[in-house]
Design a protein around this nucleic acid. Structure first.
Length: 857
RNA sequence: GGAUCUUUAGCUCAGCUGGCUAGAGCGUACGAUUCACAUUCGUAAGGUCGCUGGUUCGAGCCCAGCAAGAUCCACCA
């Protein structure tokens, strides 16, 4: 690496990352189950929400990593044994969809193969595609413990999931039930409620004559599965019909009329057809009235058991024929256009067919109740705070969780059902020999359940499996310090991790939750492939550098809010990196000339001042990191490095050099920026002549010693310099920005720092007035300084001076108005009132002085 | 239908427990410039803090209502 005149990230990032990995810099200091008690109190742990093993990273991952890695690096510098566990997701259904599509492209169907064959094929498919994601995490500078990478199908994950499942089974929390499930006829699998997308759609509500009654329905084709008509028990119109039967159109069946609250007297005719096998409400009604469940649509979405000409038709095709037939028979008595919510498969958009299936369900009542108990005790702190109650509300209304999926790519459900006739033996047995299709226990044969687990069932174990939590062993890394993830998987993932963590370990799985919002495009719209507004983080890194990307994506972002991605923030990040690079080059060149061995001391106001500012910056970052205010931390660093360190301190050091202080302050800045911009800070650290080792392994800086009165005096000096610059820029007409020399009266601050004032304000000369002031007197700074301008310019400056008097007058008026209010003086804190009084005094004096100047002119 | 969030400069956003003249980045205007940096330096312009009330000595911030936008949840035939 060379200190070139600009920072070129692409040339050195890979090299630096490789050096970190080679030095094992990402591994935690304390091994699990080993440290002393005092040491384990100093552990920091965080796990990565596992990106899809065979996918590419998107901007959301970029944000996740920028946040998580900044936290990890910060706490590492703070001396904690930081463990950032990376992961890779087999992404059950997601991957399966991609694979199935590929299979279809070459003219094959999943139904040609056994589960084991398919599993092996997808495994190979994933292995081929794998690796990109991990390379991209490295490009982002992720300081995660690669040795501990957890894949969601790893042995320890599967065995832990089986353990939990077995325990739940024995605890009676798992049951096999025939219920209606959300079923996608395209993918031929069931979904959890959470995986279904509801969309408002236009539909038709048809009125159909059922004997003496008229029912309203949006799904006439399901009438073959009707086993009753329901009316409201309070509905006087149909009172006499309850208990009687009516003839089901297009069939020979008679079905009963039942009284049930489900029927809304206000809606339609007040009569509802009941199809327990194909509608959630009807299922409930059927259960209450002991009605039969007749399936008329099969797993492929085709009509079944309805006779000719319906059988074999898709439900939608059958609907039209049913309508035609009803019309012909004069039974279709009305239709109305309506808008209603329709459930769709979140992946392919196919309308979800509620289907009667035997599946494994988890009774979530106990799990949710326990989780709520811990949440209400505030054992987990949420960022943003409001999400806690949103989560509790969700848990309170949670329904039983269907965990069976009819896809081969996933963790096999370790259950076998009895095939030999034996009344004594249980119907189902738990067994982990899922590689066998059939097992024998005590002479009884059992066949494997061909389903796999819902991915969220296994991923709810993520904090447990990533930290290798074990029964009865102290684990310094569990619970995690923080769970960082996207706000939109609060229910699907965070809720389930909490329930499972509490169930398995008795403790909440993490102490804090930080939820980030979506990364939207520049105009605040959701990014999607179909809109073509997707930005690839790797392109940003190639263009601006990894640090710039991280700084840029953290800018302007706060917990839980969906925010636009601004490429110019990334450019700003790159500029900051380059600025720091050049600051370092200059500091190095001064150190080369001045040596600066030994401890630092402060020797002038500017030096005291920068110490104060750096200390403030350090404290600010500590506060920000505690509260997860990354944007503020980055902004504070930007201001401190650029506006304070470079623009004032470094400029002053061009005149008064203090190499030992330059060294210590630059080191402090590098360490403070390191969590957010790891590459450039490490690159500079490696380039500086006096630093040793790697910055990643350094300690967070200590506060600097300084003289606070001297530091405050530097503010006065800054005011003087700024005033000179402003006055130059405000000179009239063609004299604008003409640099006249400076003259100053009897003033020790100016006298002691005349050279600094001259250089920093760009004045060609600076001299004392020798008791003979002339030119333009600087107005606002409380010091006697003049621009040595000729008389004509001074006259023309009159206008600007008048404007200033007016401006100060307006401020004075505002302060006076406040003091005129007796209740302000009475009720406001004394300190504030005093400040106002002082302000009035100061401004009054200033106006007098300005007016005096005006008269002189 | 229920819930949550957002609304501050041209754009994207800060503004932590209410307190003097509301900030940043980018953009804009004017000016500078061999020697750390044009990925630079200096100066400036630009805001009735969505609207209407209320509480308070004092409101961008607290309370109530309204409007617009976004997201999540929900089985309405």
């Amino acid at each position: 690496m060379k200190f070139e005149s600009s920072y070129e990230p692409n040339e050195i990032e890979a090299e630096i990352y490789a050096a970190w990995e080679a030095a094992k810099a990402f591994q935690p200091k304390i091994a699990q189950y080993e440290g002393t008690e005092a040491e384990t109190a100093d552990a920091f742990s965080i796990v990565m929400p596992p990106p899809n093993a065979n996918g590419n990273l998107h901007l959301g991952h970029g944000l996740t990593v920028a946040i998580e890695d900044s936290l990890t690096r910060y706490y590492r510098l703070k001396g904690k044994s930081s463990w950032y566990v990376p992961g890779a997701d087999h992404a059950g259904f997601e991957t399966w969809v991609v694979y199935e599509r590929a299979l279809e492209k070459v003219g094959h169907s999943r139904f040609e193969y056994s589960r084991d064959e398919l599993y092996a094929k997808v495994w190979d498919f994933v292995q081929q595609q794998r690796g990109n994601m991990e390379l991209q995490l490295r490009a982002l500078g992720t300081s995660c413990a690669w040795d501990d990478l957890t894949f969601t199908l790893d042995e320890n994950v599967v065995s832990r999931v089986y353990k939990t499942f077995e325990r739940m089974f024995n605890d009676g929390m798992v049951y096999r039930g025939e219920k209606l499930v959300n079923y996608c006829t395209k993918h031929q699998t069931a979904f959890a409620d959470i995986e279904v997308e509801h969309k408002d759609e236009d539909g038709t509500l048809w009125d159909i004559q059922y004997g003496p009654l008229v029912v309203s329905t949006t799904r006439p084709e399901t009438l073959f599965g009707d086993t009753a008509v329901a009316v409201n028990p309070k509905d006087a119109r149909y009172k006499d019909l309850v208990g009687k039967t009516v003839k089901l159109p297009l069939t020979d069946r008679e079905i009963p009329v039942v009284a049930d609250e489900h029927a809304d007297m206000e809606y339609g005719t007040g009569c509802v057809k009941i199809t327990p096998a194909h509608d959630y409400d009807d299922f409930e009604v059927g259960a209450r009235h002991n009605l039969a469940r007749i399936r008329v649509i099969d797993d492929a979405g085709r009509m079944v058991g309805c006779g000719e000409p319906y059988d074999g038709l898709l439900a939608l095709e059958a609907r039209q024929i049913v309508l035609d037939e009803l019309k012909k028979q004069g039974l279709l008595v009305g239709e109305k256009k309506i808008t209603h919510a329709v459930a769709h498969c979140y992946k392919c958009g196919t309308v979800i067919e509620p289907t009667l299936k035997e599946q494994w369900f988890i009774d979530v009542k106990k799990l949710a109740k326990e989780a709520i108990k811990h949440l209400e005790k505030d054992e987990i702190k949420f960022y943003p705070e409001a999400k806690k109650n949103v989560l509790i509300n969700y848990l309170e209304n949670l329904k039983d969780w269907n965990i069976s999926r009819q896809i081969p790519w996933g963790i096999a459900i370790p259950m076998f059902h009895k095939v030999t006739e034996d009344a004594e033996a249980p119907e189902w047995v738990f067994d982990t020999r899922v590689n066998l299709q059939e097992i024998e226990i005590g002479g009884v044969k059992y066949a494997r359940d061909e389903d796999t687990f819902d991915t969220w069932f296994s991923s709810s174990h993520w904090p447990i499996v990533c930290t290798d939590w074990l029964e009865g062993k102290e684990n310094p890394y569990y619970p995690l310090n923080v769970m960082e993830t996207a706000g939109d998987i609060l229910f699907a993932w965070v809720a389930r991790m909490i329930m499972m963590g509490v169930y398995v370990t008795g403790e909440v799985p993490f102490r804090e939750v930080y939820l980030h919002g979506l990364v939207l495009d520049a105009h605040g719209k959701k990014m999607s492939k179909s809109k073509g507004n997707v930005i690839n983080p790797m392109e940003m890194i190639a263009k601006y550098g990894s640090d710039a990307f991280r700084l840029g994506i953290l800018r302007g972002r706060s917990a839980g809010i969906n925010q636009a991605f601004a490429e110019n923030s990334v450019a700003a990040g790159r500029n900051l990196c380059n600025k720091l690079w050049n600051i370092s080059r200059l500091v190095q060149s001064i150190v080369d000339e001045e040596a600066g061995e030994g401890a630092y001391t402060t020797e002038n106001m500017g030096e005291d001042w920068i110490c104060r500012e750096l200390n403030d910056c350090r404290e600010q970052i500590e506060r920000d990191m505690k509260e997860y205010r990354f944007s503020e931390a980055v902004e504070t660093l930007q201001t401190t490095i650029w506006d304070k360190y470079a623009d004032w301190f470094i400029e002053s050091q061009k005149i008064y050099r203090n190499a030992s202080l330059l060294k210590v302050t630059l080191e402090m800045i590098l360490k403070m920026l390191h969590p957010f911009a790891p590459f450039v800070t490490e690159a500079i650290w490696q380039n500086l002549s006096w630093t040793k080792g790697m910055i990643i392994a350094e300690q967070w800086p200590e506060a600097l010693e300084f003289d606070s009165i001297s530091a405050e005096n530097f503010e006065r000096l800054k005011e003087v310099v700024t005033e000179v610059r402003t006055t130059y820029a405000a000179l009239p007409g063609s004299y604008k920005n003409k640099k006249f020399g400076l003259l100053y009266g009897d003033d020790s601050l100016v006298d002691d720092n005349s050279l600094l004032i001259q250089k920093m304000s760009g004045a060609p000369t600076i001299n004392t007035t020798n008791g003979q002031p002339r030119g333009i007197r600087l107005a606002l700074a409380n010091h006697e300084i003049y621009l040595d301008a000729p008389e004509e310019v001074v006259k023309d400056y009159k206008e600007a001076l008048t404007e200033r008097i007016l401006a100060v007058g307006r401020e004075l008026d505002a302060l006076n108005a406040r003091m005129m209010n007796p209740r302000y003086v009475e009720k406001a804190p004394a300190e504030l009132v005093k400040e106002t009084r002082d302000g009035i005094e100061e401004k009054t004096k200033l106006i007098e002085r300005l007016k005096g100047e005006l008269e002189v002119i």
